[in-house]
């Protein structure tokens, strides 16, 4: 077999393995983090709970997948896979550093969004397929939420693409090389509102990944468990891992778009460790936010998107377009 293909395959496998491992161990990190915030240890039995995710996995896998009587069998079974697979697949295009990238596409950003849009489809199918009133309500909520938050997210990305002139994630990251002052989060002459954009993008990725305070789709205090109420066994496990894979992708995307990718803040020694550091810091903040805030309401969520995020991001887009012409 040709060496290049081997490389590509290995890279893809590594990317997928990274996503899966992350998804599994982020559950642990989340529980530990939540524990620390609430001043309790969290799962800590065997060496800081290092065996917890595999054991959880074994537990989930050995359980019976119960399909509810009235459920739509096909949709019910397809939905968890549809939730997990696209999330992991989009890892292929994420560059971890200059050289470590499974496949650098010139439309990387677009691809991630395209695959992320499958996620909401999965939730819709899961809710519909379960034939549970709570699940249907949750999936309707989830989809309206996804639609509402994809718009400001894409507008923000458009702003950045406009500035850099590329949709290739690698080139996007490279365009910010050379220290913290070149990062997109720092306001520049052509785009003075960049920190706001960062905030908008961050909020949107919280919403896109169904994380608290936007976890309306699985609002356990009103909709029991939302769209995965009826799921047990590995069906639930796939949803769970899909959620965390989405989180990793969201954090990676923020890192690449705003935080200089694998670049060091001082412009020295860029490398994959910087990328991972930033990603995990962002993931920590995801966890931190989740365990701090209560949940928003449905209309509060939509109001936030349509009345605050979209107007501001549109304004930012126009401002940046104008300023790019000037400078």
């Amino acid at each position: 077999m040709d060496l290049t293909i081997l490389n590509a395959v290995v890279a893809v496998v590594i990317a997928i393995a990274f996503a899966a491992a992350n998804a599994a161990y982020l559950v642990l990190a989340e529980r530990r983090g939540a524990g620390r915030i609430q001043r309790r240890p969290g799962p800590n039995v065997n060496l800081f709970g290092i065996l917890q995710p595999p054991l959880d996995g074994i537990k989930l896998m050995t359980k019976q997948l119960v399909i509810p009587g009235g459920a739509d069998k096909a949709l019910f079974l397809v939905a968890p896979i549809l939730a997990m697979a696209p999330a992991i697949t989009s890892f292929v295009t994420i560059p971890f550093s200059d050289t470590i990238v499974a496949h650098s596409m010139n439309i990387g950003v677009l691809m991630i969004f395209a695959f992320a849009s499958l996620g909401s489809f999965a939730i819709l199918l899961a809710g519909w397929g379960s034939r549970n009133k709570y699940s249907v309500m949750a999936s309707v909520r989830a989809v309206s939420q996804h639609i509402a938050y994809e718009i400001p997210m894409l507008i923000t990305v458009t702003t950045i693409v406009m500035m850099t002139g590329t949709m290739n994630l690698k080139e996007l990251a490279l365009s910010q090389s050379g220290g913290i002052l070149h990062w997109h989060i720092i306001p520049s002459l052509s785009s003075p509102l960049m920190p706001v954009s960062f905030l908008i993008f961050f909020i949107c990725s919280l919403a896109e990944t169904n994380r608290a305070p936007f976890d309306l789709a699985e609002a356990e205090s009103e909709l029991v468990a939302g769209f995965h109420t009826e799921y047990g066994s590995m069906g639930f496990g796939l949803f769970f891992m899909g959620e965390y894979a989405h989180i990793v992708i969201g954090a990676s995307l923020i890192t690449i778009l705003f935080l200089g990718g694998w670049g060091c803040p001082l412009g020295l020694y860029p490398g994959v460790w910087w990328f991972l550091l930033k990603v995990y810091l962002l993931i920590f903040s995801f966890i931190w936010i989740r365990w701090t805030f209560p949940r928003t309401t449905v209309y509060g969520l939509l109001n936030l998107s349509w009345k605050i995020l979209i107007p501001i991001s549109l304004f930012n887009l126009l401002l940046t377009a104008g300023l790019l012409k000037v400078f």
Partner: peptide
């Protein structure tokens, strides 16, 4: 709110 939970993060566990 975030600052409060962040401070609590570094406090010892009580359980």
């Amino acid at each position: 709110g975030l600052s409060i939970t962040f401070k609590e993060f570094f406090k010892p566990v009580v359980t």
